[in-house]
Design a protein around this nucleic acid. Sequence first.
DNA 1: AAAATTTGTTAGTTATAGCTAACTTATTAA
DNA 2: TTAATAAGTTAGCTATAACTAACAAATTTT
Lengths: 221, 221
Amino acid sequence: MASQSKENYLKALFHLDQKDKAISVTELGKVMEVKKSSVTNMVKKLAESGWLKYEKYQPIRLTKKGRKAAALIIRKHRLTEMFLVTKMGFGWEEVHDIAEQMEHIDSPILFDKMDELMDSPRFDPHGSPIPSKDGTLHATHFYPLDSFKQNDIVLLKALRHSEHTFLEYLNSKELKLHEQIAIHSIEPFDKSMIVSYGKHTHVVLSATISTNLMCEKVGDI
Amino acid sequence: MASQSKENYLKALFHLDQKDKAISVTELGKVMEVKKSSVTNMVKKLAESGWLKYEKYQPIRLTKKGRKAAALIIRKHRLTEMFLVTKMGFGWEEVHDIAEQMEHIDSPILFDKMDELMDSPRFDPHGSPIPSKDGTLHATHFYPLDSFKQNDIVLLKALRHSEHTFLEYLNSKELKLHEQIAIHSIEPFDKSMIVSYGKHTHVVLSATISTNLMCEKVGDI
DNA sequence: AAAATTTGTTAGTTATAGCTAACTTATTAA
DNA sequence: TTAATAAGTTAGCTATAACTAACAAATTTT
C-alpha cells in the first residue's frame, strides 16, 4: 500500500467523510496537524494514485478505492485494540497508541489470526464497529445518553471519543461498556443526570459526560 | 529513539559485531542491501548521535549505547516471534517478517506485557537468545550437529539461521527444537549423517543441514 | 615497486513529507 | 459593492535516506 503518512491521511479522510459534509483542505490540515500547504501537496499525490478526487479549490472526495483502503486500516487498528484488551489484558485506555502504530503493519496473516482468535469481533473495546474484511463498515444506531428520558433504562454501547482522560474518568466511576444504566432524573438547569449502574446507585453524570456515552434503550424503570 | 532505518543499521551492526572481526562499510552495505555511499552517509549520522565510533577509512565500532539500543530492538523482535508462536499459534516459519515490523514499535508496555504473559522467555522460536531488559545478551554454548561424533545423543537447541526454505525443510522432516537426536553414523565422504529423532529413525541429514542445527550433547547411544 | 583491484569517500541527484512566505481565490462583513 | 477575512495554492527551503558517478585511499597481485 501507501506510506505511513499516506495511510494516516486516508484514515483522517475516512473519518471526515463519515460526517457527510464536504471535506476541506483546512479541516484535513487540522485533523492531521499539518499546515494547509502540506495538505494541498499530499492531496495532489493521493489524487494521482486514485485514492481520492481533487480539483483546485474544490472539496476533497474519497474514491471507492480510497474508502476501502481506509476502512481496512481502521480494521487493523480496531482489531488490534480488541486483541490487546481481550487477549493480552490491557485496559481500554492503554490501547490506542499501540494500535496507532500497529495499524501500519503489512501482514494480512497477523490480522487474520487476531480476527480468528477473537471469533471475528464486530466492535472494538470502545464500542466502535470494526470494518469487515471487504472494507464495509456497518452503521451503528446508538444515541447519546443525554438524548434519553427520565426512567429510561439503556445499555452503554459505545463512546463518542476515546480520549485518555475520558477513559480514566470512566474507569474511576467503574462505568464499563455494555453496562445497564437507569436514568433516575435529569436536572433541567445543567442537564446533569442521576443514574444507577452496576453496583453504583444515584451517581451524578454531567452533560459533558453523558453526551459522549452512546447508548441503546432496553426498557423503563 | 532513532528512525526505522537507523534502528535497522544498529541491528545489523550488532549482528556483525557479534562475529568479533572489524566491521567495514562494504560489509554493512551488503547486510543492509544499500550502496557503500549510503552507508558512509548513515554511519556519519549515527556517529554524531553517539551510537558508534567512526573515522574515515577505519572500521566501525558500536558504542556501549549503540550496542544496548540494538540489543533492545532485537529483544523486541525475538519477544514478538515467541509471542506469535506460543500465544497466537503461528509456525516458526511465519513470524520473522511480522517481527521485522513489530520491532520498530515504540511501546514499552506492549513488550513488557508479552514478556509477562510468556514468563520472560529466554529464547525465541528458533533458539536465539532474547536480550534481557537491560540490553544484555548472554552467550549460548551450542555447536553445529556436524561437530558431534557417531553415537552422540544431542538436543537440537537452535538454528544458525532461519531462512524460510530451511524452516520449511525442517517442518517437512518434523524436526523441531528441543528434539533429541541420536547420531548413528557419519558418511566420511560427504559428511552426511544418519540420525534418529522423535518418531523418525535412520533419517539422512546432509552436511548443509547439519551445520545449521545447533546442538548440545546430552549422552551416548 | 608498479599496476591492478578493492574499498571508501565526496558531490550532486531523487523522492518523501514536512515547513514558511507570498500570493490568489473565495467568502463574509461593512 | 467594496473591503476585510478566510481558504487554498505556489514556490522555494529543510531533513531523511536512498541513489549514481567520479574520485581517493588502501590493499593485493604481479
